[in-house]
Design a protein around this nucleic acid. Structure first.
Lengths: 201, 201
DNA sequence: TGTATCTTTGACCACTTGGTTAAATCTTTT
DNA sequence: AAAAGATTTAACCAAGTGGTCAAAGATACA
């Protein structure tokens, strides 16, 4: 038996992640997950006691694997303009590989904001560092003064939003799936340029 | 009896809109809607034959009242920089009054992209006009060349995203509800500034 | 006033849902 | 090999779901 075979628990988690992220907590059926995993429905309850418990595992896992990847670049000790380029590139790459994640997370979060407390907070995403870095660049006369919250909101908005609004964008821009991929690829240039131009003195 | 009393059909639509936009199609229960409207569940089926039919009415109505408001400013015959300021201001105002709409629309759209064809397309949102306007400004030497798709994506992203990501932003920015409102108000200045700086020669 | 039509309701139904259970099978331990 | 434990299954259950229906209340109309 090869090493990359999944045990039953991993198999369930993989199937559950796929079904939950595509259909949401309310839209997902335990039977869907069992089918996706190719197992009996009762086995889901053997490993994870309830639908809610299973969902909680998936949600925690998504947050814990997703968030640190994003934050690590933001808090790295590299020059600001480099950071903006690198962040955009790596973030868009991650999103392109997991295009359904943002919609999933924001939808579930808006239905139940309390999930934040137990999950995202403990990933230790600290926005303070980027604020200090911006402040230094302002004092050095390299950029105009800007509220760090808006800076980060602008940056993340332009990276994430196209993935959430994909069907709408494809509709009004008259793009097909391949056109959308090119569009996303272009944004690795467009977004950092726009951000840097907006803050440069 | 005063004129502003709602008839039963309007009462149902109002209740259904509230429940559907907050809980989504899958999360909404017909009983919830009946309770919200203060009527019997069977009456819902008397006016709208099924849950799907009722949902379709709501979704169509949301698109048809929301979209034109947004597009009208974009296609208006006013100078570009004015247009950017006015669009941001009016769009953010509309969103602040209906903060749950974008999440609702994008979630349902990503579960069922086909809804676009019958709904949004017929609102006649034509992106061509803004493309021409940008082209003229480029030729006049006022702005740098930019792909209209990215211009619009940037503009809309920065306006809409904070509403979709509200719980997350409040979490990482350590804002309370009032702080978030101020943050949104500030963006009426921040966003057009950022956009204009990013395209100015 | 009586009757035909529209509106509203409580009771009900078929089906789906998450969840349980007892038995069967496979693994590990002795 | 046999006992003990872990894993997997088919069959089942109670609660909840969208939806129906016959009858009761309103309303309009003759």
């Amino acid at each position: 038996m090869s090493e990359n075979e999944l045990n039953t628990e991993q198999l369930i988690l993989k199937a559950a992640r796929k079904v939950f992220t595509h259909k949401g907590l309310d839209g997902a059926r335990m039977q869907d997950i069992a089918n996706e995993a190719g197992i009996n429905k009762a086995l889901l309850h053997y490993y994870f006691r309830s639908k809610d418990k299973l969902f909680e595992s998936i949600f925690k896992d998504v947050i814990k694997t997703f968030f640190p990847q994003v934050v690590s670049v933001l808090v790295a000790d590299i020059p600001l303009f480099d950071k903006i380029h690198r962040f955009t590139e790596s973030y868009i790459d991650i999103l392109a590989k997991n295009p359904e994640i943002p919609g999933f997370v924001f939808h579930e979060l808006s239905k139940n904001p309390d999930r934040l407390i137990g999950n995202i907070r403990e990933t230790g995403a600290d926005i303070g560092i980027i604020g200090e870095q911006l402040q230094k660049e302002v004092e050095a006369g390299n950029i105009r003064p800007i509220n760090p919250a808006h800076f980060i909101a602008n940056l993340i908005s332009m990276c994430v939003f196209p993935f959430i609004a994909r069907p709408l964008l494809m509709g009004i821009m008259k793009m097909d799936a391949q056109g959308f991929d090119s569009f996303i690829e272009e944004r690795k240039q467009i977004v950092p340029e726009a951000i840097i131009r907006s803050i440069k003195v």
